[in-house]
């Protein structure tokens, strides 16, 4: 029983350290809301948001789904 517990703890430790070494991607968006205010009909309003890769691994933007 005691050996099993030690084994589980060891496995968990290995998994945890492996994931720490691997790192994780992280997406940071400093500005997440933009208000255009008043705007006319039949117009294309445009705004640029900045996306930053702030994790420990390469970030992949897979797709942007319209709201």
């Amino acid at each position: 029983m005691k050996k099993s517990v030690i084994l589980i703890v060891l496995i968990l430790g290995l998994v945890l350290s492996f994931s720490l070494v691997q790192g994780a991607p992280r997406l940071t968006i400093p500005e997440t809301l933009f208000d255009f205010g008043y705007a006319p009909q039949n117009a294309k309003l445009t705004h640029v948001f900045w996306l930053h890769s702030t994790g420990d691994d390469t970030l992949k933007i897979i797709r942007v789904k319209p709201g």
């Binding site: 997406l27 255009f36 009909q41 294309k44 640029v48 948001f49 970030l59 789904k65 709201g67």
Partner: peptide
């Protein structure tokens, strides 16, 4: 970093409109 341009076509909308695009990533 990269830029993400969002385009909102106002068409024949009236009054307030809110859009919330979702960004799918490997995060």
């Amino acid at each position: 970093s990269t830029r993400l341009e969002i385009i909102l076509h106002t068409k024949r909308y009236k009054n307030k409109i809110i859009k919330q695009p979702r960004i799918e990533s490997n995060e």
